[in-house]
Nucleic acid binder design. Sequence first.
DNA 1: TTGTAAGCGTTATCAT
DNA 2: ATGATAACGCTTACAA
Lengths: 353, 353
Amino acid sequence: MSRRPRRGHGRPTLDDVAQAAGVTRITVSRFFHSPDKLAPETAARVRAAVDEVGYVPNAQAGQLASGRSRVVAALVPNLGYSIFAETIQGLSEGLMDSGYELMLMPTNYSLEREERQLRALMAWSPSALVLTGRRHSAAAEQLLNGLREQGTPVVEIWDRPDAPNEPGAPARIGFDHREIGMRMACHLMELGHRHLGYVDNPVAEDYRARERRAGFAAAAAQAGARLDEVQAPPGDSFDSGRWALQQLLARQPAPSAVAFANDLLAAGAWVDLQAVGSSLSSSPTSGPALLGFGDFPISRQVRPMLSTVHTPNAEIGRSAARSLLAALQSGGPPEGQALACELVARGSTPRHS
Amino acid sequence: MSRRPRRGHGRPTLDDVAQAAGVTRITVSRFFHSPDKLAPETAARVRAAVDEVGYVPNAQAGQLASGRSRVVAALVPNLGYSIFAETIQGLSEGLMDSGYELMLMPTNYSLEREERQLRALMAWSPSALVLTGRRHSAAAEQLLNGLREQGTPVVEIWDRPDAPNEPGAPARIGFDHREIGMRMACHLMELGHRHLGYVDNPVAEDYRARERRAGFAAAAAQAGARLDEVQAPPGDSFDSGRWALQQLLARQPAPSAVAFANDLLAAGAWVDLQAVGSSLSSSPTSGPALLGFGDFPISRQVRPMLSTVHTPNAEIGRSAARSLLAALQSGGPPEGQALACELVARGSTPRHS
DNA sequence: TTGTAAGCGTTATCAT
DNA sequence: ATGATAACGCTTACAA
C-alpha cells in the first residue's frame, strides 16, 4: 500500500502518522513527549492515527536526535551466584516502567573484562551506569570519570560509601565488607572464643571477600585472639566448606569458632558436623561454632540453624534504581547509600565456655 | 580546541577521525567494518587517528543508518529464582564478544507484563529475541509473528520443541514438562509405589509447573495409581514444602511417595522427615519416598540425598545464544533444540516394599 | 498551539 | 581503493 523506501525497517514513521492525522511530524512527536501541549482534539486525531498505522517509535532515531539513550547498563561479576541475581532482579524492578531499559553485562570477576565491557558500552551512551565494587582498572576509572564529568550518573554497588558524603566521591550503595568481617569476629569473641578460624571463598578476584577476611583477622589480632585461615577450594560450595573446616579442625589446637565467606560453605561444614556429632554420641554437639555470611535460605533450614550475616541483596538493586532515576531526573549526581547488614545469631554460635 | 556544536554528545565523530587521518568519513567507517578493503597504509593512518582523537563509535547512529540494532532481548519471568539466573548467565556468556548486547526484561510470570515489555522492545528493533515459554498473550503472538516474518530470530526457552522440526514452527530450546512429570511418576511407580502425592508450586502463572503436575497425574491415572495433590503456599520454599507434605501425610491412607515442583520444596520436607524419623527411632526412616525437581545443590547435601530431575539450566542459555547467533549470521530461522533432563535417583527414593 | 528548518552520526548506493 | 551523496527517523531551536 504505502511506499517502501530502499532502506530502513519499513515500519511506519512519525511522518506516516502525521499524514494520517493531518498534522506534521513534530506534532506527533509532541503527542508522545508533551501531550499537554496539544489541543485536545488534535491529540485525539493523533492518537487515532497512531493506532491506525500501528506506529512504534524508533528508539535509535530518537536517541540519535536527542543525544540521550534510555539505557541503563549494569556490570556484575556473575549471575549464577544468587546474590547478584537478586540484586539485578531488584534493579530491574526499580527500573520497570521508567522508560529506561536494562543492559546487562557480566564481568566474570575480571577487571580486564569489566574494562572491555565498559568500552563496548561507551558506544551506547548509557544514561546511567551500575558497576559492582569500587575497584576498577586504571583505564576503566578514566572512562568512568569521563562519563561522570559529562553528567552520566554512575553508582557502584556492593561496596561501602565513602565516609561523609564527600562531594565528587563516587556514589556507592552497599556496606563496608571489612567492617562486617570485624563484626563477625567480634560476635564470636563476645561468645567467649579465643581461637578463631576463617574459611575464605575460592574466587581469587573477589576482593570484597578478601576485605571481610582482612577485617575478621584485624579484629581477632586486636583482641589478641588466635586465628587460623584457609581458602576453600573451587567446586561445590558445600563440599568445599566441609573440606576447609576439616583442614582447620585437624590442627592442634583447633579453633573453637569458624567464620565462612558465605553460607553455602558454612552450611556444608555445619551439616557435616552435626552428622558426625550425632553418630558418635547422642549428646548435643560440642564442636566448633560456625558463622556464615549472606543469610541464604538454607541457613534457616539446618538444625541447629546457622548464624549468619543478613545482606540486603535485592535492596541494593532497588536502591541503585532509585538513586539513578532521581539523578537522571534532577540532573545532579546520584546519591550513595549505606545499607545495613544484620548479624543474625542463631543456633550455630551458642555461648561458649 | 575543537568546535563544540550546539547538539550531540560532543564526542569525536567519524568526521573528526577522518580529518585527522586525511581521509573521508566513509573510509573510517570501512576501517571498522571491512578493514581488508583499505590499503594497508591507509588503515594504519586511520588506526592512529582513531587513537589520537579517542574515537568511540555511536551505536545509535550506526543502528539508525543500518537498520540493524545489535541488541538481543531476553524476557524471563524472574531472576531471583536461580534457575533463570543461571540461564541468563549462560546466555550472556554465549553472547559475549559477539558484538550483541543483552537487554534484560523481567516479566514477573505475567503474560500481560510480557506483552508490555514486548511492546516497549519493538522500539529497539532487537536483532533477536529470547522468550520464556511457548505461551503468550494473543497480542504478543501477533507482535512475535510480525518480528519473525521480518526475519528477526526468536527462540522460546524452557519449553519443549514441537515434535518433528516443523518448518515455520517456533524455535524452542528446552524440554517437555509434561513428559518430565510423567517420568517422575513412572520412577516412583517402578519402585513399587501405588499411592502417590504431588506438591505443586505456589506460582499460579507458572504453567510449566502445571504441566509437570498434569503429566505426573496422567501417568499415575494410566497406571491406576492413586494420587493426592496439594499446592504449596507462598513463602519460604523449605517451610512451604514441609507444610505441604504434612497435609498429604495427614490423609488416610497417606501416599507412600511424593513428588515436588522443585527441590527446595522437597528438601524442606525431606529434612523435616529425617529429623522426625531419627528422633522417634534410630532405625532408617520408613516414611514416604520424596522426589524433587531441578537438582539444586542442596539436594546432594541432605542425607539421604534427594532424588530429583537434573535440568540443563545454563545449557539452555548457551544453546539459545548459539542458535540465535547462527540464525543472525545465516539469515535463516533459528533452530530449536530438545535438551535432556536426567532423573537422578538418590537416597530419597529407595526401592519400596 | 502548531509549524519550519536544520541537524544528530552513521551506513547504503553508486560513482570514480 | 576511495569518495560524494543521500538517506535513516527523530528532536531541538526558533518562528509564527
